[in-house]
Design a protein around this nucleic acid. Sequence first.
DNA 1: AAGGTTGTAATCAAATTAATTACATGATTT
DNA 2: AAATCATGTAATTAATTTGATTACAACCTT
Lengths: 140, 140
Amino acid sequence: MSISSRFAVGIHILSLIELNKGGVSSSEFIAGSVNTNPALIRKIMGMLKKAGLIKVRPGIAGAELAKELSEITLLDVYKAVNVVQDKELFSVHDNPNPDCPVGRNIQNAIYPLFSNAQLALEKSLGSVTLEEVVKDIVKK
Amino acid sequence: MSISSRFAVGIHILSLIELNKGGVSSSEFIAGSVNTNPALIRKIMGMLKKAGLIKVRPGIAGAELAKELSEITLLDVYKAVNVVQDKELFSVHDNPNPDCPVGRNIQNAIYPLFSNAQLALEKSLGSVTLEEVVKDIVKK
DNA sequence: AAGGTTGTAATCAAATTAATTACATGATTT
DNA sequence: AAATCATGTAATTAATTTGATTACAACCTT
């Protein structure tokens, strides 16, 4: 199973706001670039706003970045759009048999290992800023 | 969204086979420890078998490890049970607008970054062997 | 007051998971 | 050889999540 495309769309939204600095980035405009529904864009923008990444106001068309792109990492976006609940990238079967030594201890044995893997993922995402993404888009 | 518990169950199965070396690890026995259905266990065991991690034969009760636990990493299990398709941990929205500079290039800009994050995750999983997991279970 | 935009809830089809049932195939036992 | 038990595998089902869509209240500008 895959992590929701909300994450990729979030990156798309932020990049577009930056590259459209001169114009007005309304949800409809952004939806046109992402090729989806304006309501979905507004929903994701609401998450980005809540995370302090963009500024949007009811009734006023357009969104602005709340931070420099160089200060926003992919991890910030990842966390903002809630694609993965904290510590729950990997799901674990519940109610293993408590009368079995393996069933009784498997969860505690696995948990820190899964947690480390998830942290490695997040560390990787945290090492890339949106500035780099936008530079790459411009270059192409 | 979370990665299927097949992964955790796969680890459970392999650990149990090891710790039950003296006895017969039938799908029903394993299902009792995992607390699920024998058919599901057989399905996952089929994947582990296909990946060369265990030996099972039709009609013959019980499964055996095909390798030493010290030679099996979490990554081997992860790949065996197909919880994530190669290069598809993160999903990307399709059909972004080709007439927009961002829409046209976002996928290529994002792809290697997502790929790196996924590799970091896999590297972490590849650094842990099942031997460590079983030792931890025994200790508890 | 009119027109356009954001915020948000509700609905819907499609996809995936895990549980379950069913049964064909294969091996062992009596 | 027949009965019994295990694996292999397909099909079904309910629950959950996703992304698309509609609808509309709240808000701002002209």
